[in-house]
Design a protein around this nucleic acid. Structure first.
Length: 167
DNA sequence: GCCAACGTTGGC
DNA sequence: GCCAACGTTGGC
């Protein structure tokens, strides 16, 4: 059996809340608090080894601030059971948890943020939920073409530990 | 801070 | 099942 192809995603985070620098500092983070069904379903599709563009929203500038790797596949979101959390969901039960999370770890930071403005200029990114007007999806799939175009634009394509040959 | 776009809720 | 009201997201 051939090795599984890496798959690619984009994760949005507000850097005031949790930035890519924070991820590098802590080394690993549980991606909890996602409370949108479409985003949750994407989380559940993630596999260990999948690569994620770490996107800063509500930031200056907005854009991709790093690359992360999925280090644990989907498991029940801890915050849904915590009454003190803003992400508490009284309708979730241990038997039937409604929300999921994954764990991610940092892979690399580009020399500079790949801004949304620049992303919009890349042909590969013309058709993406990220660049389409009004989209608020916080976890979204990225095509291999989009991922590699982003790496190229950040000047980090071919960096060790990323995706092998890139083809 | 503004506001357009979107998702969710709840009355009916 | 419809849809108005409401809350949230996120670019600007």
């Amino acid at each position: 059996m051939p090795p599984a192809r890496p798959r690619f995603w984009l994760l949005k985070s507000e850097p005031d809340v949790f930035s890519y620098a924070d991820l590098m500092r802590v080394g690993r983070e549980g991606w909890n608090g996602v409370r949108n069904y479409q985003a949750r379903n994407f989380l559940r599709e993630m596999r260990v080894g999948d690569l994620c563009l770490f996107y800063h929203s509500n930031a200056r500038p907005t854009g991709v601030a790093g690359v992360a790797r999925v280090v644990r596949a989907a498991y029940p979101d801890d915050l849904q059971f915590d009454p003190a959390s803003e992400f508490y969901d009284p309708k979730s039960t241990a038997d039937n948890p409604r929300w999921s999370m994954v764990d991610v770890a940092p892979v690399l930071a580009p020399p500079a943020v790949l801004t949304l403005d620049t992303l919009r200029t890349l042909p590969e990114w013309q058709d993406s939920p990220l660049t389409s007007k009004g989209s608020r999806l916080s976890v979204l799939p990225v095509t291999p073409e989009q991922f590699h175009a982003a790496l190229r634009a950040m000047g980090v394509e071919g960096r060790d530990g990323l995706v092998g040959s890139g083809r």
